[in-house]
Simulated scan of single mutants.
Amino acid sequence: MKRLVAGMALVALAWPAFGQSGGGFTDVLGNWSRDDGNARVVIAPCGKALCATNTWIRDPASGEKVGDRLEMKLQPTGAKAWKGTAYDPQRHRTYVMTMSLGGKLQTRGCILGGLLCSSVSWTRLR
């Protein structure tokens, strides 16, 4: 989950924003595979947030496990781009997060005031 959190690395979000074009999240909902091939997640609404939940982990010894989730509270910053916070309830840690969708889903999560950051690319699963 550490890498998911860092990757998905996530300001309250109103429910109607999920369906809005441009600022909404409709295009990011669904199943994604981390480009290193070590994890798969489903991104779906969860209350007033957007959650990324692990559905498959190559090596559970890494500390990640199926069912771990990241709760993202994001606001649009542009066309198919968002910024906000992500909370990892398994580790009780909050990250500053950006997410953008072009050909792939790109995520970046930071802690310690932006001193420690990680970026991850995700490919949509069909």
Rank of each mutant, 00 (worst) to 15 (best):
R3D: 14
R3F: 10
L4D: 10
L4R: 09
L4E: 08
G7Y: 01
A9Q: 11
A9I: 04
A9N: 12
A9D: 13
A9C: 11
V11E: 15
V11P: 13
L13R: 13
W15P: 12
W15L: 09
F18R: 08
F18K: 01
F18W: 08
Q20V: 03
G22S: 11
G23P: 05
F25K: 06
F25R: 10
F25E: 04
T26Q: 11
L29Q: 09
N31F: 04
W32K: 00
S33K: 05
R34Y: 13
D35A: 13
D35Y: 01
D36V: 01
D36E: 15
D36Q: 06
G37N: 12
G37K: 11
G37R: 07
G37T: 03
N38L: 10
A39L: 11
A39E: 11
R40V: 00
R40H: 10
V41H: 05
V42H: 08
V42I: 12
P45G: 10
C46M: 07
C46W: 09
G47Q: 06
K48C: 08
A49M: 01
N54A: 11
T55R: 09
T55K: 00
W56D: 05
I57R: 02
R58S: 12
P60C: 04
P60F: 08
S62V: 02
G63C: 08
E64T: 06
E64M: 07
K65A: 15
K65H: 08
V66G: 04
V66W: 06
G67K: 14
G67A: 12
D68L: 09
D68N: 15
E71W: 03
E71Y: 02
M72R: 11
M72K: 13
M72S: 10
M72G: 11
M72I: 05
K73C: 03
K73A: 12
K73R: 15
Q75S: 15
T77R: 14
T77C: 13
T77I: 14
K80C: 01
K80V: 02
K80H: 06
G84P: 09
G84S: 03
T85M: 07
T85C: 08
T85V: 14
A86S: 06
D88S: 07
D88C: 13
Q90R: 12
R91I: 10
R93S: 01
R93G: 00
T94N: 06
T94P: 04
T94C: 00
T94D: 10
Y95L: 14
T98I: 07
M99H: 00
M99W: 04
L101E: 07
G102E: 00
K104I: 07
K104Y: 02
L105K: 02
L105V: 06
Q106S: 04
Q106H: 14
R108Y: 03
G109P: 08
G109Q: 13
L112A: 11
L112E: 09
G113W: 00
L115S: 03
L116S: 14
L116Q: 13
C117G: 02
C117S: 05
S118Q: 06
S118Y: 00
S118V: 12
V120S: 00
V120E: 01
S121W: 09
S121Y: 05
W122N: 02
T123N: 03
T123S: 12
T123D: 06
R124I: 01
L125T: 11
L125S: 09
R126I: 13
